[in-house]
């Protein structure tokens, strides 16, 4: 028997999306066509299955790899450090309060410009390297004299 209704039309009819006139024709056809009634049952079963469809889930490894890539890509950029520092910035950088900074300010590799004192970051690090060497030398000497010297505050 040749049906005047296609399977696609039945799917549209099942979800109430036929134009009114066509819907009435399909309803009349369904009353006399057992095959199309069977198709309507099949469509209803498919719609039920598709209401809770089988979902693919990514593996834990793939999620972790993607998370890491995203974390790298979205990390905030490192702040740009100015090459020239004010005394206040030097103090903060060295974690010294203003009084402590005053004690060492004369030894800093500073320069004066327009009445202001500035320090080149590069020079500051060289100065720190130098002090590290001095500290190591002093503590080595201290240890030779008295192994407990470093432990006493």
């Amino acid at each position: 028997m040749a049906c005047s209704v296609t399977y696609d039309e039945l799917a549209a009819y099942a979800s109430g999306e036929c134009e009114a006139g066509r819907g009435a024709e399909i309803a009349r056809h369904l009353a006399v066509c057992e095959a199309c009634r069977g198709r309507m049952h099949a469509i209803a079963a498919a719609d039920r299955a598709l209401a809770a469809p089988p979902r693919w889930e990514p593996s834990a490894g793939a999620v972790l790899a993607a998370s890491r890539a995203i974390a790298r890509a979205t990390a905030p950029p490192a702040p740009i450090e100015p090459g020239i520092m004010t005394l206040e910035e030097v103090g903060r950088h060295l974690r010294l309060n203003p009084e402590q900074l005053d004690e060492i300010v004369e030894t800093l590799p500073a320069f004066e410009i327009a009445g202001q004192v500035r320090v080149r970051r590069q020079k500051l690090y060289e100065w720190i390297d130098q002090r590290e060497r001095m500290f190591r030398g002093a503590s080595m000497g201290a240890r030779e004299r008295d192994p407990a010297a470093l432990d006493t505050p």
Binding site: A12, A46, D47, L50
Partner: peptide, 13 residues
């Protein structure tokens, strides 16, 4: 979508 639902119905049937 209508066609896909019909195809799935056909396959499941």
């Amino acid at each position: 979508i209508h066609r896909a639902r019909a195809e799935v119905a056909r396959a499941l049937a």
